[in-house]
Design a protein around this nucleic acid. Sequence first.
DNA 1: GGATACATGTAATGAGTTACATGATTCC
DNA 2: GGAATCATGTAACTCATTACATGTATCC
Lengths: 191, 191
Amino acid sequence: MSLRMALLGLLTAKGPSNGYALTRDFAGSLSHVWAAQHSQVYPELARLSEAGLVTVEDEGPRGRKRYSVTDAGREELRHWLTEVEPSRTVRNEVALRAFLLPALGPEVAARLVRLEETFHRQRAEETGQLRDMLNAADRPGFGAYAAELGVRVSTAIAEWAEWAADQLEAEAADARTDQADGASDTDERMS
Amino acid sequence: MSLRMALLGLLTAKGPSNGYALTRDFAGSLSHVWAAQHSQVYPELARLSEAGLVTVEDEGPRGRKRYSVTDAGREELRHWLTEVEPSRTVRNEVALRAFLLPALGPEVAARLVRLEETFHRQRAEETGQLRDMLNAADRPGFGAYAAELGVRVSTAIAEWAEWAADQLEAEAADARTDQADGASDTDERMS
DNA sequence: GGATACATGTAATGAGTTACATGATTCC
DNA sequence: GGAATCATGTAACTCATTACATGTATCC
């Protein structure tokens, strides 16, 4: 359902477009929000068309199809946004890895988390630039709220990673001094 | 792959367990990290067992099977955490809805975003309590890092929602005064 | 004895990924 | 003429959801 709505939304936001361009949008400005490959986009556009939520305006150069939203499509999007309870199911690999971290020794874990920090600092930076571009554009609004959200979430993750790495390094230091003291309640964790 | 690793990780963290209990973990402490239903858990445990990454320790009361991780399973988890590049594909319905917000009028959008704020403030609160419980437990570590991440991310989303709602309400107020002034470049957005 | 929680599975369907396949235009 | 990009599709497979199906122990 979400992909369907993403497509309706993109076509509402940008006006008529084709599958190829929409796929690029998923790889670009939408990439921190929703992912989709062309192999998913084309069939879904066909289904939307069959359902009367979009229409093929015309066929251009290399078999290119310009889709645009119909009134029914706009209504469907509005309905989904306002009436349908958001799905809150989370499936976040970064968080899963965070959960599993203690299965590793604190030193290895700290190193991994530092990498995570770098990645998310960078993502926050990039998304911030995107947001600034969107705000400067002629038609802000679309994408700008999502970009702001992206910046805030990436920053929060980066800060968590920094905190976690500090914790883990302290833990590693403790373990070392304990060992030096000959205190040996043997550590069962994997190294 | 992630579900597989989540199961290996849970069994590493908690020691031997059965499919029913593991499914409850996904609904509980793991619910803000990774989702899985029992219909996914049981077959995956069977596959893990066949691959020699877990073993059935014994069969209890109502056909209950106690699984525990093997050395091969522990090594597989370690390998995945340290050597396999994390998948960064994002599919976040909250963010998608944020992206699509401007397809609605600012007043309706503001109302929706306020609901979002409430939800995430609550989630942050709950996850914070979970984190405190985990930190007080005899074997902290597992889950505690993920819970801290959850608190920070939920808080960031709640703050974004507050900010966005303020923005949208200001926009709505602007639109009203414009209209009162008779300035009518007609608004094409859906209400 | 009846309700509830424990416990495990399968089947059908839908969503998403990767790989295969093809062809047209444009840029150099 | 060759490479890159534009453009659209399908097929096989994996992952995930919802619904179906069944039976056991425990609590009251």
